[in-house]
């Protein structure tokens, strides 16, 4: 029997190579390849129909796509900033609690435990203009006598989605920032008090630099999350009204699975990946800089 001539290291690593190829490499190559074809799910043969950069050119010229792209960036910016500020506030408050803090921390994480689809349904109900909780409450309090079309009005629909997003994910920031607050050394805080700092100055000059790395970690994680936002939007508005809440991924799913233009959808996917990469790199740079400042970097 002839022995295989393959080097030992290769044979030993082969299972890993095979698994990686099957779950990562082949889908990646295939989807990248198909973004250069007129591949339609309804006509499998079309995957051989090489059209070069035509999908990409079409997307670059498609205002609708860039609106969706811009809306995603907008959602990301507003939602992340709100979540960061609210999470910071929440963490600072919980950090002051001396009794029952563990319980509070657990309760704080509840929104993260729900499926985003269910959160979407919940807020679809809350913001419903006829039977929704929000209008009901506003009207009962006498703040308005009209039914506000939360999910139907172009501006309000985006607001409602941001509201749901913030409700669900502020605790990500709160938990991570709280962990950061626990890690702030007490000595510099006391030194600052003695040095003449007011509570606000202590926070601004001492506490904040110490928790910045944690804030950036939360931002990096959440930017990836929001950049691929799909489920909540799908349920609450499905991109409507009149595409006013259409994001990259809702459009992508529509193009790929409803219109069955998988080649085009894959091209969208590859463009949108740059968005995710951009934010991740940006926040990781910030993270490293803030760690360096504290002398924590390697």
């Amino acid at each position: 029997m002839r022995r295989s001539k393959l080097p030992e290291w290769f044979v030993l690593l082969l299972p890993a190579f095979i698994i990686l190829a099957a779950v990562v490499l082949i889908p990646l190559v295939l989807s990248f390849y198909s973004s250069f074809t007129a591949y339609r799910l309804t006509r499998p043969d079309s995957i051989n129909n090489w059209i070069g950069f035509r999908n990409y050119v079409r997307l670059f010229e498609d205002a609708g796509f860039w609106w969706a792209f811009g809306r995603t960036v907008f959602l990301l910016t507003i939602a992340l900033n709100l979540e960061m500020l609210l999470g910071l506030g929440l963490a600072l408050l919980v950090n002051k609690v001396t009794w029952g803090q563990r319980g509070l921390r657990t309760i704080m994480m509840f929104p993260m435990m729900f499926s985003p689809v269910l959160v979407g349904f919940q807020f679809k109900f809350i913001f419903n203009d006829n039977i929704g909780l929000m209008n009901n409450a506003l009207q009962s309090l006498g703040l308005t006598d009209q039914a506000i079309p939360w999910l139907v009005d172009g501006g309000l629909a985006m607001f409602s989605i941001i509201f749901a997003e913030v409700w669900m994910s502020t605790s990500v920031f709160a938990i991570l920032i709280l962990a950061g607050l626990f890690a702030v050394p007490q000595d510099p805080l006391e030194a600052a008090k003695v040095d003449g700092c007011t509570p606000w100055q202590t926070f601004r000059h001492i506490t904040l630099p110490f928790i910045m790395p944690f804030i950036y970690i939360a931002l990096a994680i959440r930017s990836l999350d929001v950049a691929r936002a799909y489920d909540i939007v799908k349920i609450m508005t499905n991109g409507g009204p009149a595409n006013r809440t259409e994001l990259i991924w809702t459009q992508l799913a529509r193009t790929g699975y409803v219109d069955a233009k998988m080649g085009l959808a894959n091209a969208m996917g590859y463009i949108s990946i740059f968005l995710a990469i951009f934010f991740t790199v940006y926040f990781f740079r910030k993270l490293n800089a803030s760690r360096q400042i504290l002398g924590m970097a390697d």
């Binding site: 000595d187 510099p188 030194a191 003695v194 007011t198 000059h205 001492i206 504290l294």
Partner: peptide, 20 residues
Amino acid sequence: LPPRARNISMVFQNYALYPH
């Protein structure tokens, strides 16, 4: 009076410098 109003300075065991 809070510490800041006492016009004192303190040197701590662990130096308590501001690392940033």
